[in-house]
């Protein structure tokens, strides 16, 4: 059973690495199209850094709490695991809410992805990350139901381990986004 779990985790790790290559392609496209604003606004004109800092802190804290959930599961504490998972879910959804409100704000001001090549690459990169966070949240919801119904079985702990890997990976991608997209624009 231990060996089986290791195989599944390694397979999932392989998936994460291929996802990493996907994000690298989007980052490369963003870097190339960074200056192609078509005479329109750059990110510096339209983004707010304190807002991004709050988003970053939300995602970072959720990365911490999902780690706590995994730890609690290893010590077979069901209530604590569920509590940490719920906290992660709330933080993840708040992050998503902030990002969507930022997007709708930009679009309402006329800075949609149709404006310039730069904005297309910006929305694609940040949006793809947001989509991953959304899918991770759905997965987390399903896993929470699974743990509530079936309890902390070997299978559910393995699923939780994969989910935590995925969630930490999204946090690392976000580190790159806030550095190379948001802070870079403020240089």
């Amino acid at each position: 059973m231990k060996e089986e779990s290791d195989k599944v985790t390694f397979g999932f790790w392989l998936y994460i690495m291929s996802d990493c290559v996907l994000f690298a392609a989007l980052f490369a496209a963003y870097a190339v199209l960074n200056g192609q604003t078509y005479g329109g606004f750059t990110l510096q004109d339209i983004a707010s850094l304190p807002y991004v800092l709050v988003e970053t802190l939300l995602l970072l804290t959720s990365s911490f709490t999902v780690g706590l959930a995994l730890l609690a599961a290893h010590y077979n504490k069901k209530q604590l695991t569920l509590l940490a998972l719920a906290a992660t879910l709330v933080l993840g959804l708040s992050f998503l809410g902030m990002e969507l409100s930022e997007f709708s704000h930009l679009i309402a001001q006329g800075h949609s992805w149709r404006q310039s090549a730069f904005l297309t690459s910006f929305f694609t990169l940040v949006g793809t990350h947001g989509l991953h966070v959304l899918l991770g949240s759905v997965w987390m919801l399903v896993l929470t139901a699974h743990i509530v119904i079936r309890g902390l079985t070997v299978g559910s702990i393995r699923k939780l381990l994969c989910l935590s890997l995925f969630w930490h990976f999204l946090d690392i991608v976000w580190v790159c986004i806030f550095t190379f997209v948001y802070l870079w624009s403020a240089l």
Binding site: L49, L53, T56, L57, L60, T61, S63, F64, G67, L68, L71, V175, F178, T179, L183, W184, A186, L187
Partner: peptide
């Protein structure tokens, strides 16, 4: 272990947002 990682990440995030200079944020 997780707490140390969390604290270090927080520290690095705040530092990057406070001193926005090209080499420093990289």
């Amino acid at each position: 272990f997780y707490t140390i990682g969390f604290a270090l990440s927080l520290l690095l995030t705040m530092a990057a947002f406070l001193f926005i200079q090209i080499h420093f944020i990289i």
